[in-house]
């Protein structure tokens, strides 16, 4: 039909502005519907992926931990938080099988060599020690800077590390309890990780006193969320 029309009328006929706007509007509308549909369809899975990734990271930086809960500092007290919204500085408390408190997992970030490095580290308030470190996100140079998480020996530096005086990355071989061995060829990244953990400790170490952690609460579907109830019913 339209092909015939084209052959009969080959002149440079201008489509009306309404037609142009209409085409773009329809294209935008259809595209919008598809994008929102795929967003809604994948939303739950993406959320679960992120939660699982966080849980795995917490278990990695806190040895022997099998349970965790998110905590927020409110008026000098740590309260358990279930909310999914953007929180102000959450930390995560880890517990073993018998619900005994084992330590905190503290997120902290700062500038690395290439981009911001996000670190999660385990902290035990009873003896004021860092007991594990894991990189959540970084864009450090492949083969050099990325050893901050690929090099098991570097990661092991943080398994038992005193935080006072502040952590120092050294190239001469660590000799003090607050020193870590910097990676050859990636000194900036190594120092950055130490600085990021020091930054986290500056904020948290004085606030987290021994015996302050709340007891583990079995996760129950929060009654306030009808969506969660609905999901459970199904």
């Amino acid at each position: 039909m339209s092909e015939d029309k084209l052959e009969q009328d080959p002149g440079p006929e201008e489509p009306s502005p309404i037609r142009l706007i209409g085409t773009l509007a329809v294209a935008g509308l259809v595209s919008g519907v598809i994008i929102v549909a795929i967003y809604l369809a994948t939303f739950e899975t993406i959320k679960e992926n992120k939660a699982r990734e966080l849980r795995e990271s917490v278990f990695r930086v806190l040895p022997n931990v099998t349970k965790m809960q998110k905590l927020l500092l409110k008026e000098g007290k740590l309260v358990v938080s279930y909310e999914e919204e953007k929180d102000e500085k959450p930390i995560y408390a880890g517990y073993d099988d018998s619900n005994k408190f084992m330590g905190y997992a503290i997120p902290s970030d700062g500038p690395g060599f290439a981009d911001t490095i996000s670190v999660l580290y385990g902290y035990r308030p009873s003896d004021r020690k860092v007991i594990g470190m894991w990189i959540l996100a970084s864009r450090e140079t492949p083969g050099l800077g990325d050893k901050i998480y690929k090099d098991a020996a570097f990661v092991a530096n943080f398994d038992d590390l005193a935080i006072e005086p502040p952590i120092v990355a050294t190239k001469k071989g660590k000799s003090k309890p607050n020193e870590i061995d910097a990676i050859t060829g990636a000194t900036i990244s190594s120092v950055a990780v130490a600085k990021i953990i020091n930054k986290g400790n500056d904020y948290w170490a004085s606030k987290l006193k021994p015996g302050m952690a709340p007891a583990y609460e079995e996760p129950v579907a929060p009654a306030a969320s009808p969506e969660a109830e609905e999901a459970q019913a199904q």
């Binding site: 085409t23 294209a27 994948t42």
Partner: peptide, 26 residues
């Protein structure tokens, strides 16, 4: 219409890219 073809192509491509992006993330 050929006057708006590039924008239409980009809308189509961007929609597919968004589908791929979310599907991969999930």
């Amino acid at each position: 219409p050929k006057q708006v073809r590039i924008s239409c192509f980009i809308i189509i491509i961007a929609t597919f890219v968004t589908v791929v992006d979310y599907s991969l993330a999930a």
